[in-house]
């Protein structure tokens, strides 16, 4: 089973949702999710069923991890290079 990538809900139709995982769209069932889900929400998916609506306050944090990761790997982007530099500096400061 995959690590459970959170996806962004694009549209909801009863107990079915179209969820976007970095541009790949999949149909996910909402039968067992723990809170009402609307377009724009983030959900944790397991074998085609949403098992958790990730609360808004955690969304930014969860998103940031993926986006920072994606940005960091874009070596041609000068801003991303700055981010990487900052993190590296933070690590060095902690070591020093």
């Amino acid at each position: 089973m995959c690590l459970g990538v959170p996806g962004r809900v694009v549209e909801v139709d009863g107990f079915l949702a179209v969820v976007d995982f970095w541009g790949v769209r999949k149909e996910i069932r909402l039968d067992v999710v723990d809170a009402p889900v609307a377009a724009g929400d983030y959900v944790l998916n397991h074998v085609g069923f949403a098992i958790r609506r990730i609360p808004a306050e955690d969304v930014a944090e969860t998103l940031a991890l993926y986006e920072t990761l994606l940005a960091e790997l874009d070596a041609g982007d000068p801003m991303a290079a700055d981010v990487r530099g900052e993190l590296g500096a933070a690590g060095a400061a902690r070591r020093g």
Partner: peptide, 16 residues
């Protein structure tokens, strides 16, 4: 096959 997380999906499918 699968543990409880996966069993939830099977249960939901039957209930539908």
């Amino acid at each position: 096959t699968g543990f409880e997380t996966t069993a939830v999906a099977t249960a939901a499918a039957l209930l539908d």
